[in-house]
């Protein structure tokens, strides 16, 4: 597989990537679905057609229909037709796919970026969600309050140093 982010902007793949890089995650609008690592593949079809395969972060993510619609619109605006958009369930999404820029944006928006996805696989308790870095003050003197938050991909935390409650993007595998 080619590195999508490095595809030449003049190619259909590169043009589609640029369009998709503008599609925000509906629940974390500062980060694009591209930076979250949700784009699995971009395949040019005959004429000006394009096929995009996306990886859902969670099977039950309620934003999937919205994301599909936004992806279609972005590709229409970029001049592609016909357009195929599909969710690929054969390659599990992992939070390791989030780009460096994505991690930075999460942090700026007040969400701690995830640790390694292997942390979840190896865990026999939830301690790996404790002492994550506070996005407000940078302290690790923090505690996980709930492994589930306002969206499936986020957990709830409290910082003892600056007394702020905050959210983290969970490691997902």
């Amino acid at each position: 597989m080619v590195d999508l982010a490095l595809a030449h902007p003049a190619t259909p793949e590169g043009k589609a990537w640029e369009a998709l890089a503008q599609v925000p995650d509906p629940e974390i609008p500062v980060v694009s679905i591209a930076d979250l690592g949700m784009i699995f593949s971009i395949t040019p079809l005959s004429d000006a057609g394009i096929r995009v395969e996306l990886l859902p972060t969670f099977s039950g993510c309620p934003a999937l229909d919205t994301i599909e619609k936004m992806v279609r619109e972005a590709l229409v605006d970029a001049g592609f037709a016909p357009i195929e958009v599909a969710f690929n369930l054969h390659h599990p999404y992992t939070s390791d796919r989030i780009t460096e820029r994505g991690r930075q944006k999460l942090k700026e928006w007040g969400i701690t970026p995830p640790g390694k996805s292997s942390d979840v696989l190896l865990a026999d308790n939830l301690d790996f969600l404790n002492e994550v870095e506070c996005p407000v003050c940078g302290s690790r003197n923090t505690e996980m309050k709930s492994p589930f938050g306002p969206a499936l991909c986020r957990s709830l935390h409290f910082c003892f140093a600056c007394k702020n409650a905050f959210e983290a993007f969970k490691p997902i595998c």
Partner: peptide, 27 residues
């Protein structure tokens, strides 16, 4: 069954959080 094997891999990651949650509260 290839579909089932792929879905199982996806579900397993999600279910891990469920079992960890149950265990931590029960403990």
């Amino acid at each position: 069954q290839a579909d089932l094997a792929a879905f199982a891999a996806k579900f397993s990651g999600e279910i891990k959080y469920h079992t960890l949650h149950a265990r931590s509260m029960l403990k």
